[in-house]
């Protein structure tokens, strides 16, 4: 088996004295869709923030494409080809949709491809092209998520981490966004989906990691594990 694209080894992350992630170990193979599921407070978001460089790990190692990226700041990690779509979209609300997207091509290597990437994003989300001169703060929740996804795509990533992208969205919109994510994956980008909804995660992903109380307690392909075992790990019973 070839080396996984992203390797997380025993990562610990703290806020002050509070340990949000005690020891997380997981692999993400190239070109796959991988789900990270767990209940509220399991430490999923903290782990994503830590991988993307928003939060410094207090122990453990993170390798991306064989390179040690542990403790690098977010602005460096994005240049390695690893992008995060943070929880709650986090659009630049006082900037237009197009300015938001162009911000995604801020890294030097992405700037050359800016026009091309922009075309790709508009193809994926035609509604954004329609609204490209609107302030992103005026968009609906689903559209903001599209902006956030598009913005991440503009950085020319080889892997995108999606942190609870379905949070607070209507089921039809979630379905639509998931379809787009599959499309992005087909174009060759590795995907990590953070989810609370086990069912949806199992349906979409080729590999599932379950987090409980700051640890990855179960990993495997959904068809090998079965929904019951995953649910047990999820609730810790």
């Amino acid at each position: 088996m070839s080396e996984p694209m992203l390797k997380v080894e025993g990562v610990q992350a703290k806020y002050g004295d509070f340990i949000a992630v005690s020891s997380a170990t997981l692999d993400v193979p190239e070109k796959q869709i991988v789900s990270l599921i767990g209940s509220n407070g399991a430490g999923k978001s903290t782990l994503m923030d830590t991988i993307a460089g928003l939060h410094k790990p207090s122990a453990g190692k993170i390798y991306f494409k064989g390179e040690d990226i542990t403790g690098l700041p977010a602005e460096k990690i994005v240049t390695k080809g690893l992008a995060l779509v943070p929880q709650g979209s986090r659009c630049f609300v006082r900037m237009t949709v197009e300015d938001n997207l162009i911000m995604g091509s801020f890294p030097k290597f992405a700037r050359k491809k800016c026009a091309e990437s922009l075309e790709r994003v508009y193809e994926l989300f035609p509604v954004l092209k329609e609204k490209r001169n609107d302030l992103s703060g005026s968009l609906s929740g689903g559209q903001r998520q599209m902006v956030a996804v598009g913005r991440a795509l503009m950085t020319n990533p080889e892997m995108i981490l999606f942190d609870e992208i379905s949070l607070g969205l209507a089921p039809t919109i979630i379905k639509d966004i998931y379809a787009r994510i599959k499309e992005i994956n087909k174009q060759g980008t590795t995907i990590v989906l953070v989810e609370q909804d086990t069912h949806r995660a199992i349906k979409t992903a080729e590999l599932v990691h379950v987090m409980l109380k700051g640890q990855v307690v179960l990993s495997g392909a959904p068809k090998d594990l079965g929904e019951d075992e995953i649910k047990k790990a999820y609730f810790g019973i």
Partner: peptide, 13 residues
Amino acid sequence: KKDKKIEDAANAA
């Protein structure tokens, strides 16, 4: 403040 931050962190996680 320390206590509060910890609580916040706990809520966030």
